[in-house]
Design a protein around this nucleic acid. Sequence first.
DNA 1: GCAAAAGTGTTACCGGTACACCCATGT
DNA 2: ACATGGGTGTACCGGTAACACTTTTGC
Lengths: 215, 215
Amino acid sequence: MILGEKYNEELKYFVAVDCVIFGYEDDELKLLLYPRRFEPHYKEWSLMGGFVQPDESCDAAAQRVLQLTVGLTDIYLEQIGGFSAPNRDPGGRVVSIAYYALVKINEYKKSLVSEYGGRWFTLNKTPNLVLDHEQMVKEALLKLRLKATYELVGKELLPEKFTLTQLNNLYNAIFKKTFDQGNFRKKLASLKVLEQTGEKDTSNSKRGAYYYKFK
Amino acid sequence: MILGEKYNEELKYFVAVDCVIFGYEDDELKLLLYPRRFEPHYKEWSLMGGFVQPDESCDAAAQRVLQLTVGLTDIYLEQIGGFSAPNRDPGGRVVSIAYYALVKINEYKKSLVSEYGGRWFTLNKTPNLVLDHEQMVKEALLKLRLKATYELVGKELLPEKFTLTQLNNLYNAIFKKTFDQGNFRKKLASLKVLEQTGEKDTSNSKRGAYYYKFK
DNA sequence: GCAAAAGTGTTACCGGTACACCCATGT
DNA sequence: ACATGGGTGTACCGGTAACACTTTTGC
């Protein structure tokens, strides 16, 4: 029966999720990586992942994994897609659904991250990753860029209050190019999604820059 | 062990692919649907799908399924994403990776399609679909529209030779709106991806319209 | 000649880009 | 006063949208 007419004639596989965790700090886009906790490739750098449990969707599994590793709930998560090459994992047939997450790098639970040996790496200064995880990172960045062109990204990566220069720098980091200050601000104004707070950040300039927040 | 440290403690699930098959005919975007071949929901309308075999990736599984059902090789396929709600399939825990395909509606093997009871439906005149297949169709259309905005879609849906009016109508069908003839043609000219053949199509007008093909 | 589809041209506007310029303030 | 980062203004260009117009040909 070429197309299969009964479920129970079919094989089952492990189903996992892997998370590309983006953060932003020191004008750089960063990636949270972990030493792998089991064979094969024990202790090599990898994305944080986990197996999907019987009572949860992949989305829920990714949320759970992130909650357990960075200690935050309500994390912004977007599916990248399924990775399923038959030999992608020498440890067994594992189909993995990849996600990317955006987290505020200063809010995550440091204790949890260090418990699992997690470390933030600047993008493009990352070590070699296990399995097909580098491909996942590549696709994650493409998806993030796509999102950032359609809507203003920043709420999930920047602190509550931020200067327009910070936001400009975030975009510079995401696209690895320099957006013109004047044009960037004009665009922001047209979007009408930010509002000025009264306060100023005087740490980087004498004049001081107004803090903004998302409406 | 909250995150699982051994594969063999974990559960396995069925992994399937489902294909949203788009075609274009009579100025309308169409969808190839099939009566389901097994319980649950036996004989109800569904996307064509199949289980992933041990030696193939999901991409390969989707290609195989399409080859077996429409009889074409080298079909344009793009992954939509994973669908994994724990109760999405009452027949068992099945994680499905959805794909969309673009096929030339006049080249598929009619015998094969009818063998499985397949039928082409005009988009938005489709019957209720099984499981989460309607959601898959919805996301497939969004992905197709995204692709069609970035690059000229048509090579995979139209016959080898086609008129600019046909292409215009294809875009009208994809986006459910009317693109201005003049502007559409100007845009096409700027893309420089089409070339005129000598021949004309006189079936729709007295004057006749030049056939074009992709370079 | 006229209807009907194919195909061209004209104009206005909007968003992006480049770049020059002004502002506030601590030293 | 001046250096430094924050912030504004202007002029141009290309793509898009709206729409009027011309061409071809069978009836």
